[in-house]
């Protein structure tokens, strides 16, 4: 219990001369102030823990190399180390911005999935199957041109060559195919949108 009232300077001296329990007392005595200071700047528990740890690693190394000059200012010295590490942290964060997921900030606000959801997929499949049924209603020559153009992605020149008609005829059949499709859709009041 007598240790509780020992001044920092004595504890530091004891620690340098090999008394490990002195460090535990020093940490215990000042952890709240140092951690509170770091947390007030960082605002993140885990990062604050990291910086707290780095601070004391520096303290331990300095004390063990006996390069610490005791002037009765142990806490201000540790606070200065913590402050420098906090500055380093922000410098690093500025170079390489890192955003932690919080309640206000969600990565999914910025990343969007453009693929269709299940409902959209079902609707699209339905529209496509409805359209395939409608195509069956068209005259064979018009259907042929439309399928070649839209499903097989052929040019009108290729269609003309394959079907043995002129390009103008192929264009005309495409036009009538679309007009007829529109008519069928209107007549049956089919909705083909998603």
């Amino acid at each position: 219990m007598a240790n509780l009232v020992l001044p920092d300077a004595v504890l530091v001296k004891n620690y340098i001369s090999g008394d490990e329990s002195a460090l535990a007392l020093l940490i215990n005595r000042h952890q709240s102030k140092i951690y509170g200071f770091i947390y007030s700047k960082i605002g993140d528990r885990d990062l604050s823990d990291d910086i707290f740890q780095d601070t004391f690693i520096k303290v331990i190394k300095t004390l063990k190399t006996s390069s610490y000059n005791e002037e009765g200012k142990f806490l201000p010295w540790v606070m200065r180390i913590a402050h420098n590490l906090v500055v380093d942290h922000f410098r690093k964060a500025k170079k390489m911005p890192f955003q932690r997921e919080t309640e206000e900030y969600s990565i999914f606000n910025y990343m969007t999935d453009n693929s269709l959801n299940i409902e959209g997929q079902i609707i699209t499949a339905q529209v496509e199957s409805d359209l395939a049924k409608l195509l069956e209603e068209l005259p064979a020559d018009q259907k042929e041109v439309l399928v070649m153009r839209m499903y097989q992605d052929l040019s009108f020149k290729e269609i003309a060559d394959l079907t043995g008609v002129s390009i103008n005829t192929a264009l005309g059949r495409m036009r009538y195919a679309l007009l007829n499709l529109r008519k069928i859709i209107e007549k049956n009041q089919i909705i083909l949108t998603n």
Binding site: L23, A24, Q53, I57, K64, T65
Partner: peptide, 30 residues
């Protein structure tokens, strides 16, 4: 009251126990 995790403290105490630094001439060995 803000306190660091117990794990952090125990890491530091163990680290301190495990670490020894030796100075040989101009070099320092950890």
């Amino acid at each position: 009251k803000m306190l660091p995790k117990k794990e952090t403290i125990s890491f530091l105490l163990n680290y301190s126990k495990a670490l020894s630094i030796h100075k040989v001439g101009k070099s320092t060995f950890e």
